[in-house]
């Protein structure tokens, strides 16, 4: 970071306070376990922390008691008052070395094996089913939020925190990606847990492709890229509560998903299509996805099930 640049700007206390750009990480010398700190600064008034922040923390701690293997451990939440207007909430998480993004980047040349992908997907859906059954939606599932331990264990992170974290700083050119966002969110229709299934579908495809499936540059562009693959949905599926008309999009028909994800097997392709279903009500749920024949072993998959 160039020191010089800060001179021409007013110091902004809310942002400048911490060691931005570094993360505190520690090893417990007794257990050998790694932890990392994530701080969130929350604005307060004379009544203290916003009640919704308190609720979110309570929810996270309650979920923690289930000790789900596919959810990142939240070890502690520590609050310190920094001023009358600001409280720093420090979340102590278990530290995992890499996320799915780097995991995919580091995978040697041909990419991940089909079995590895299946295992990762199964764990991802397990974690998601757990969150969904506790009425928590992630809303921002992406490879960066999926941690992968050195043993290949998947751990979902960053869920439920949307309420605690505000947006990332508006002062930096950090902008949250659109690439994993489902049509109903892009269209500003109502949404619920199926949003995460859409994102999971995008990630599923990305595991094979080793590059994202839909790289839109704006909401419209994102929708356009989606329809290029799944086709323009029929009029009756277009949500009624949205301002954007279906007529704004060219009448594309669906293309075979294998054109975009050639390495995927037949059952994987079927599951992927069920995840990338336009209508959130018709989209497969995480529990049903786990029951999909794609996850059956080779032996059992030959047995026909009705």
């Amino acid at each position: 970071m160039a020191h010089g640049t800060s001179i021409q700007y007013e110091p902004v206390a809310e942002i400048g306070g911490g060691a931005y750009g570094t993360v505190y990480k520690a090893r417990d010398t007794e257990s050998g376990q790694f932890v990392a700190l994530k701080s969130v600064r929350v604005q307060t008034d004379q009544n203290g922390l916003p009640i919704s922040t308190v609720r979110e923390v309570a929810l996270l701690r309650r979920l923690e008691q289930f000790d789900h293997p596919n959810v990142v451990r939240l070890m502690d939440v520590c609050a310190t008052q920094r001023s009358d207007q600001e409280t720093k909430v420090t979340l102590v998480f278990e530290h995992v070395d890499q996320d799915l993004k780097t995991y995919l980047e580091r995978a040697p040349a041909p990419g991940l094996s089909p079995d590895r992908i299946k295992d990762l997907m199964k764990q991802l859906l397990c974690g998601l089913a757990f969150l969904h059954s506790n009425r928590v939606m992630h809303r921002d599932l992406k490879p960066e939020n999926i941690l992968v331990t050195s043993q290949g264990q998947v751990k979902l992170a960053d869920f439920g925190l949307a309420r605690i974290y505000s947006c990332h700083m508006a002062l930096t050119p950090v902008v949250v990606t659109l690439w994993y966002r489902p049509p109903e969110v892009l269209l500003q229709s109502s949404y619920a847990t199926p949003v995460d299934i859409w994102s999971t579908g995008c990630i599923f495809a990305e595991m094979f492709r080793r590059k994202p499936l839909f790289c839109g540059e704006s909401e419209m562009d994102q929708l356009g890229k989606i329809f290029e693959v799944i086709g323009l949905p029929p009029e009756e599926e277009w949500p009624t509560d949205v301002t954007l008309s279906r007529k704004n999009f060219p009448p594309l028909t669906a293309r075979p998903i294998k054109d975009f994800v050639p390495e995927i097997n037949e059952q994987g392709a079927q599951l992927l299509l069920k995840m990338l279903t336009f209508d959130p009500l018709k989209r497969i749920s995480s529990l049903n996805a786990l029951e999909h024949p794609y996850f059956c072993d080779e032996e059992t998959s030959t047995q026909t099930k009705s």
Binding site: S39, V40, E144, A170
Partner: peptide, 11 residues
């Protein structure tokens, strides 16, 4: 370190 651990600043 995974991006997830980065501090969030309430802006």
């Amino acid at each position: 370190t995974p991006a997830f651990y980065q501090d969030s600043v309430q802006n």
